[in-house]
Nucleic acid binder design. Structure first.
Lengths: 210, 210
DNA sequence: CTCAGATTGTGTAATATTGCACATAGTATT
DNA sequence: AATACTATGTGCAATATTACACAATCTGAG
């Protein structure tokens, strides 16, 4: 029985994809789905889906499959996304502004609750209904608003300093758009969005066979 | 000897990180680096770096380490990023515009050579010096300009259709920002940028210990 | 020219991840 | 109530990835 051991991170990373696919099924009025069908939609084998889910419990019915709405609710509960999360955004440049205006975050329970920038010109300015605050106020504002998650959208050479402040202010999950690896202590999670690295890894295959 | 077998994709994905770190070292005037030092900067073990590189050749000197500039050049050559790549961008919305204006792409040899949108209101408009063209012209324009790589920045429900057209037009590498899995035939590479999925996978750990 | 110190490249072991395949259990049909 | 289907949950096998550890090799000092 898998349920007794902690799920590998690869499994945790797939759960949001399962959840999203189930949301689309639900929207399309599909009430029931098999691991086979779900897998075909997201290019994951049926066995993998079943095994992944087995880390958290038994959610299907033999001979039938999964109740879409029920499984979605269960996964959302497992991930803790059955509630909204307050997130801080650091860096209100081109990218930062685009992120603030992106509707997808709020729709999926990601609530940008604070925006910080180091440029005094920008402080007090409102973007998408949110007032930009000065970076120096991070360490007081973050604990006040109980923010545990942050998005870094500053230049690479400032990312580590920003992360250090975040960590001191008890932020424990960071999504960084800065093209540099951030050092964090045990217990803090960092993930990266790195389009250039992705494109550069694909050029390998394009170069190869031509 | 590793060099005789094709490198696993995990290895290929790490190469751009090695390259970037080397670029930073070079910029800082550091001429030589050991696998140990390089690894500490990007949180990869020294053995992993050495083994990864061994898929492509021998680049270091025993007792010394690696010549930063030389290794960087070699990796850039392996990845095929020692030249510029023409990339198409599909979708000139909020996100698309931010991507066009992002300097990082051009600096790293990613040359946005065409921008398409389905909205006739936007056609002919110039963004960041590039004229937006109509999506219908993709199938003729892409082969003309010999574009093999594309970035999808359209809503989820249009992503698959766009991908289909791209593939017909011989695009073989796709970076998609749309929150949905795209089906592609053998020989076409797809990767995703999915900040919501990333944040949702981190909330798992935050929920867990509180 | 020899020795000490450093660091690579890699065979092999260890670990992690994925996939197979089947007993089990549910539904539908007759 | 028996049979035929279907699809789950999971033990185990297969594969993939990472880490270890050491012989080989380079440099520099004396």
């Amino acid at each position: 029985m898998n349920r007794t051991i902690t799920p590998p991170d690869v499994v945790v990373r797939r759960l949001p994809l399962y959840a999203r696919s189930l949301r689309y099924l639900l929207r399309d009025g599909i009430l029931s789905v098999s691991s086979q069908e779900l897998g075909e939609r997201i290019n994951v084998t049926a066995a993998q889906i079943r095994k992944d889910l087995s880390y958290f419990g038994e959610f299907g019915k033999q001979g039938i499959g999964y109740d879409v709405e029920r499984l979605l609710n269960q996964i959302e509960h497992i991930l803790g996304i059955d509630r909204a999360w307050a997130v801080a955004l650091i860096g209100a440049g081109q990218l930062g502004e685009a992120l603030i205006r992106y509707e997808g975050f709020r729709e999926q329970g990601i609530h940008i609750a604070a925006v910080f920038d180091a440029n005094t010109q920008k402080i007090g300015k409102s973007v998408g209904g949110i007032i930009i605050e000065h970076s120096d106020s991070m360490s007081t504002v973050l604990p006040q608003r109980n923010i545990q998650m942050a998005i870094i959208a500053v230049p690479a050479d400032r990312a580590q300093q920003v992360a250090n402040v975040l960590i001191k202010a008890n932020v424990r999950a960071i999504l960084s758009y800065a093209p540099t690896v951030i050092q964090v202590p045990e217990g803090v999670w960092v993930r990266y969005i790195d389009p250039i690295a992705i494109l550069h890894s694909m050029t390998f295959y394009l170069s190869r066979d031509e």
